[in-house]
Write a protein that binds this DNA or RNA. Structure first.
Length: 421
RNA sequence: GUGGGCGUAGCUCAGCUGGUGGUAGCACCGGGUUGUGGCCUCGGAGGUCGUGGGUUCAAGUCCCAUCGCUCACCCCA
């Protein structure tokens, strides 16, 4: 019996973990400048919360959730619902009119895994709650763009507005009418979608469907006055901030809570999973979850695995800069090991990355190991030196070697040694 | 849920129309340097060829089943 990660779940080993750290650090650095605050919420919530927030009829809720049916609990398939629950539960709206929050962590969806899609995946999730001005939409999108730029990734931005409960039903009806008229020519999936989720036909990948919806009614032409004005404001804001974008009137959302502004950052380098970040406005969500009335919000999620894949592709040639050890102690013999161990520990108290080998292997083997941890210095402690209370300090870069006295308590020896490194 | 591709060393992979599992590369260990890393050189260790059946004198190779991985559909970050 051999244990292994189960399908759709993945180990992140040290080399890759370095990239994850870089990604998170870059994100945190950007978020700080935009005044975002971190929150950490549980990965388990009541099933009812997700059903209510995401929508009973969505694929995510209908067939992709990891649910403990007997307990009424579910592993979160996305972050927004839990964040909104926390926002409402703790009355965050009272503390500040606009809350700027982010969270980072794992999400779970029981889909068939493929490139850029795991069953456990990670998102960086940002939410701005409590304001609806279009300038805020533009700021949020510009921030996401800045983050992706800082990571050195080339992605393109697409935006759309999907209206609100005022104007979407009318548009939906109009679209259904149009689709009915050419039902025979649509693919089987799209024929089914006419009834289940007509908006989805707009981004079908089937080429024939694609050309058929080209002259379908466009949602941006069917927005109510408020939504149209708002969307114009968002576009204007993006222009002001010099964020290039493409209007994609076929872009829709799979989660029910979205309203008005929607956007996606797309890459051509990930196969079928093109979206590395996506989000939009959700002006009715807080109220729908039992929070204060008229609390608008907007947010987005970045797919971390997808970003990591891009980062890996991009710098396939460069190897990741590993931390250099400050000192490697090569101890030859039991006495030497006994001398080095407390010394190394003292160096670590001084904040240095020091390490040693306890096995008393050949000096050659230990030097090799020193090279492997990219040690800047090696301290060679052998029997010859020990008799004289001395060691050899070798600069691994210049190959210079000097005698180093081991006289005194290891604490004092370490203090002297630290100065020489 | 539906299709396609692939399972040989820790990793990346050779292995042609069946005829003894590769001096393959990387990584690991040791020698060359009686106590000095990277480069070089020599050697070593490491495998139920995913698993179970079948065909055959003979199966990593052909057939069937099964498990696993992967890509795509669907859906989504």
């Amino acid at each position: 019996m051999k244990f292994q990660t189960i399908n759709g779940f993945k180990d992140i080993l040290p080399d890759e973990a370095a990239l994850w750290q870089r990604l998170e650090q870059t994100a945190r650095s950007i978020f700080r400048r935009f005044g975002l605050q971190e929150v950490r919420v549980p990965i388990v919530e009541s099933t009812e919360l997700f059903a209510r927030a995401i929508g009973e009829a969505t694929d995510v809720v209908e067939k992709e959730m990891y649910t403990f049916a007997d307990k009424g609990l579910t592993l979160r398939p996305e972050a927004t619902a839990g964040l909104m629950r926390a926002y409402i539960e703790h009355g965050l709206h009272v503390q500040q009119p606009v809350q700027r929050l982010f969270t980072i962590g794992p999400m779970f969806r029981h889909e068939r895994p493929q490139k850029g899609r795991q069953r456990q995946f990670h998102q960086i999730d940002v939410e701005l709650i409590g304001a609806s001005e279009p300038g805020l939409d533009a700021e949020l999108i510009a921030m996401a763009q800045l983050l992706l730029d800082d990571l050195g990734l080339k992605v393109s931005l697409e935006i759309n507005s999907i209206g609100c409960p005022q104007c979407r039903p009318a548009f939906r009806q109009k679209l259904v009418q149009h689709l009915h008229d050419q039902q025979e020519q649509l693919c089987a999936d799209c024929r089914r979608r006419i009834n289940t989720n007509p908006l989805r036909t707009l981004d079908c990948k089937n080429s024939q469907c694609r050309s058929l919806v080209q002259d379908a009614p466009s949602i941006v032409d069917n927005l109510c006055q408020d939504c149209a004005t708002h969307f114009a404001g968002v576009r204007c804001g993006l222009d002001t901030l010099a964020v290039p974008y493409q209007l994609n009137r076929f872009m829709v959302r799979g989660l029910d809570y979205y309203t008005r502004t929607t956007f996606e950052f797309i890459t051509a380098d990930l196969g079928a999973q093109a979206a590395v970040a996506a989000g939009g406005r959700y002006d009715g969500l807080v109220e729908q979850l039992g929070g204060p009335k008229n609390t608008p919000g907007i947010g987005f999620a970045l797919g971390m695995e997808r970003l990591i894949l891009l980062l890996e592709q991009q710098q396939a040639e460069q190897d990741i800069a590993r931390d250099r050890a400050d000192l490697f102690a090569a101890a030859l013999g039991d006495k030497a090991v006994a001398t080095c161990a407390p010394l190394v520990h003292e160096l670590r108290k001084h904040g240095l990355y020091a390490t040693m080998d306890y096995s008393s292997r050949s000096l050659k083997a230990q030097m090799k190991q020193a090279g492997r941890v990219k040690a800047r210095f090696a301290l060679i402690v052998g029997e010859q030196e020990l008799d004289k209370q001395e060691a050899v300090l070798r600069n691994m870069d210049t190959q210079e070697q000097t005698a180093f006295s081991l006289h005194g308590a290891s604490k004092d020896v370490a203090a002297r040694l630290t100065k020489m490194l």
